[in-house]
Design a binder for these strands. Sequence first.
DNA 1: GTCTATAGACCGATAGAC
DNA 2: GTCTATCGGTCTATAGAC
Lengths: 215, 215
Amino acid sequence: MTSNLSSHNGAGVVTVPVKVSFKAQMLQAREDAIVEAVNRLLAEKGFDLMTVDQVAAEVGIAKASLYKHFPSKEDLAAAAMVRVLARAKTMLASLPANVPPIDQLKAVVRWMMRLQLAGEMPSLPSQNSSLRATLMANRAYLDGLLQVSDHIGGWIEAAQADGSLNPALPPILVLYTVYSRACDPVLEFMQSTGQHSDEEIVEFVVTTCFDGLRK
Amino acid sequence: MTSNLSSHNGAGVVTVPVKVSFKAQMLQAREDAIVEAVNRLLAEKGFDLMTVDQVAAEVGIAKASLYKHFPSKEDLAAAAMVRVLARAKTMLASLPANVPPIDQLKAVVRWMMRLQLAGEMPSLPSQNSSLRATLMANRAYLDGLLQVSDHIGGWIEAAQADGSLNPALPPILVLYTVYSRACDPVLEFMQSTGQHSDEEIVEFVVTTCFDGLRK
DNA sequence: GTCTATAGACCGATAGAC
DNA sequence: GTCTATCGGTCTATAGAC
């Protein structure tokens, strides 16, 4: 899968740094596999119903090896959240800049909902205190969340300034309303009826979110 | 609280059925206390974090006594859901009939959100399969849910017919969107900022729900 | 031969069930 | 009040790389 820089290398003196790099690559690759598995399981079952044994089984490694990478179940979840925040940042940066802020916001909401419908959006309980403590102590998580929120917050203020978003609503309410589309149970319910495609559901909810239920 | 038919009854022959009735009343009263405690704990911690020991402690009875009333933790949760559905039915019936359907719907949404803000709305995970199985096997729950949904569904169709609700939206989507206000994390987030009163938050979310984020 | 990582048994705590 | 199952977390013996 990855090129082995140390294979067939006759010079002993240079094998030492190369070996370390190869090992580090392996570790990194496995860590990625772990976080991806955690992400998937968190989306499928949620934090409470996900067990670390399942994570180990999904990755195909021993549970003890998991604890070489992450000190606790909470840190596993935090890593998954950091991962989605990183994906969000990439997505935000890739959006074309020359469109109205309201359309940027819609694009963000669509992206979140597609992630949820694809079963790639981790779901964490807002009540678990040990999990909250771990998240709040995680610099990468807080940084990522702040950056994403700032980015979206800028569009919210711009959209309120140009009149395309209701200026009477507190920006923080708009931000939370956007975020909550990532865990909207309506998506799952509509999907379970089997009456509409994922893209239809996304457009329905974008409509209810931005234009409301009213005509 | 309830009239005790057996008190000061000198005739021994008739005390037997009366005594049974008294016992039944006591059982019923305790069952009500249990379900109310479960309701409160479900709202506070959610199903997974609520333990049966906490319920027993809250009611002030032994855990074994709980299992005389309800065969499992899932059935406790089901009883709490039946209770809120009954309260919902009462609320629906008490609404004045001579107002536009759109305002009936708004009243329903306001009632749900006030219940959540008051910490009286049980929160169940949509992933727990054993819980789902118990709910789907519970006739009282299914009946209650169907009746409430029918009642609200009638208003949705009426509101779409009179043009106050977007007729392009599937009624089931509107129903789910209304229901999801009962577990909207935006309420809790806005409450935690401490910037707005509960009633302000309710009106904000009613606005975003029916009129959307747009101006 | 040494060192590391792994697999899988194991432990303590907790919760549901009766 | 006890029994059992499960889960988060740890420990140890071993396999394999160098």
